[in-house]
Design a binder for these strands. Structure first.
Lengths: 233, 233
DNA sequence: GCATCTGTCAACCAATCAGTTGATTGTCTG
DNA sequence: CAGACAATCAACTGATTGGTTGACAGATGC
C-alpha cells in the first residue's frame, strides 16, 4: 500500500471547512493538545490549501507539484503519499468543491439577492471560480454527460411565483447570471478596460454588485419599475 | 539568422483572413499557379491554423508544439524557423486576433443586436473566445496595464441616446454582456445542466440568441416595452 | 524501553518536451 | 545548368517534471 488516498475514496474525512478564504488552515484539530512535529491531517490540509492556490492560479497543466509542496512546506513526495499524485490531489479538490456547491441556491431568497450573493462569494475568493473555469476550458469536447436541464427547477418555481418575466426562460437567465458573475474573474483585464476599476478592490465589488442587482431586477416581471421605483404611475 | 519571425515583428504580412472558421487554409495565393512542394507562406498558414486549434483546445501550457506541427503536416522545427518557438507562435495568434477585434463594436447598431451578433460569432467559432479565456486565466495577477475605462465610450453614447437605462452604468452592462456571451463557451457543461441543450447545436444558438436579445432589451430604458412593443402609452 | 508502524525526506529515475544542429533537397536566378 | 539561397527534416540535447525508492525518525502500543 503506497497510496494513502485509496482508503478514503468515497468518504468525507477531509476537513472541508478548514480552508478559509485566504488559504490558511484552521488550527482546530480536536484530539491534539500541542503542536506535534508530525501530523498527517495537518499536512494533508496544508497540501490541499497550497494545491487550491496553485491550481486556481495556473490550472492543472500549468500547476507544478514542486511548487505546491514548497508552498505547503513539505516534501513533494507526500503528494503521492497522501493523494496518489498530482491527479489525485486535483480530484480531491474538485470533490470538496462539489460538496460545498450543494449548499447554495436557496429557492426562497429573491433572485437579485441570490445573484449578488454569488457575485460577492466569487469576488471574495475567486479560487473556486477559477478552478471551475480552468476545468471547463480543459474539458475536452464531446457529448454532454449526466442529466440535462435539471438545474433550473428552483428557477422555474421562481417564474411560477412571478419572480421572473414570463417571456424569459429560466435556463437562459441562469446561464447569463453565471456568465455575469464569472466575468470579473474570467476576464480581469476586461474589467479594467471597461469600468476603470481594479476587479479586486472593494470599490469594484460594491459597484458591480449594485449594478448586477439592478440588472437582475429588470428581468423580474413584465414591469421593471415595480421592484425598485414603486408602482408605475 | 535562425528565426524568420524576427524581421516580421511589427509588420502584418500574414494572411489574417486566410484562416476560416473551420481552421482550413484558404487556397488563394495569387502568384502561385500550381502546387509547389515547398511554400513558406502555405506552411506558415498551416502552422497558424493548427496552432489556433491547439491553443484554443488546451491553452498555452497544455499545448504541444509536436501536436501543432503534426496537425499542420510539417516538421516541428519549422515552428522555431518561422515564429521563433512556441511563444512566438502564440504571440502571433494574439496579434492577429487583436487586428480583427477592432472591426467590431459599431456604435450605430442597436445594443440587443450587437450582443446577439457577438454571441453568434462566439458560438460559430469559439476558438478565439477560448483563446481569450485561456489567456485571461493564465495572466498572473497584478496591477492592471494600459488605460482604463475607455472601452465604454460607445456605450456612453448609447446611453445618451436613450438606448440604455439611466440608472445603469455602461461599463457594468458591457461586462455582463461579455460574461453572458462567454458563458456558453467558458462553461459548456453548465449549458447542458441548465438548459438541457448541447451548446454546439444550432438549436441552442437560436434559443440563447433569442433569450439574450430579450434580456438586453429589458436593460434599455426605464420602459421595457418601448423597444419591442412600440412606443409606450 | 523496545518493536513496529506512520510520516517525512533527499536523491534518483524515466518520460516528456521545447528547442538546436547539421544535413538534404527544392527553387530561383543569372 | 550551376551556384546560392530558402525550406524542410531527422536526430539530438538539455531542461523540466511527475513520480519512485530506500532510508530514517517521530509516534504508538505493549
Amino acid at each position: 500500500m503506497r497510496d494513502r488516498s485509496d482508503g478514503r475514496v468515497g468518504t468525507q474525512h477531509v476537513d472541508v471547512a478548514g480552508i478559509d478564504a485566504q488559504g490558511r488552515v484552521s488550527p482546530r484539530r480536536a484530539p491534539v493538545p500541542e503542536e506535534r512535529q508530525r501530523d498527517a491531517e495537518r499536512t494533508r490540509q496544508h497540501l490541499l490549501a497550497a494545491a487550491l492556490d496553485e491550481f486556481a492560479a495556473k490550472g492543472y497543466a500549468g500547476a507544478r507539484v514542486h511548487d505546491i509542496a514548497a508552498a505547503a512546506g513539505v516534501n513533494k513526495q507526500l503528494i503521492s503519499y497522501y493523494f496518489g499524485g498530482k491527479d489525485g490531489l486535483y480530484r480531491e479538490l474538485q470533490r470538496i468543491w462539489e460538496q460545498r456547491e450543494a449548499a447554495f441556491a436557496d429557492p426562497e431568497v429573491p433572485l437579485p439577492e441570490l445573484a449578488v450573493r454569488y457575485l460577492r462569494d466569487a469576488l471574495a475568493d475567486p479560487r473556486m471560480m477559477r478552478l471551475l473555469l480552468w476545468r471547463s476550458l480543459a474539458a475536452e469536447s464531446g457529448p454532454p454527460r449526466g442529466p440535462g436541464g435539471e438545474e433550473s427547477a428552483g428557477m422555474r418555481r421562481r417564474q411560477a411565483r412571478g419572480e421572473l418575466a414570463a417571456d424569459l426562460d429560466p435556463g437562459a437567465v441562469v446561464l447569463m447570471l453565471m456568465g455575469a458573475v464569472a466575468a470579473p474573474v474570467a476576464m480581469r483585464q476586461m474589467v479594467w478596460r471597461v469600468t476603470g476599476l481594479d476587479p479586486e478592490t472593494p470599490e469594484f465589488e460594491e459597484y458591480f454588485a449594485e449594478q448586477l442587482g439592478r440588472m437582475v431586477r429588470r428581468l423580474t416581471g413584465p414591469d421593471p419599475g415595480s421592484n425598485d421605483a414603486g408602482p408605475p404611475g
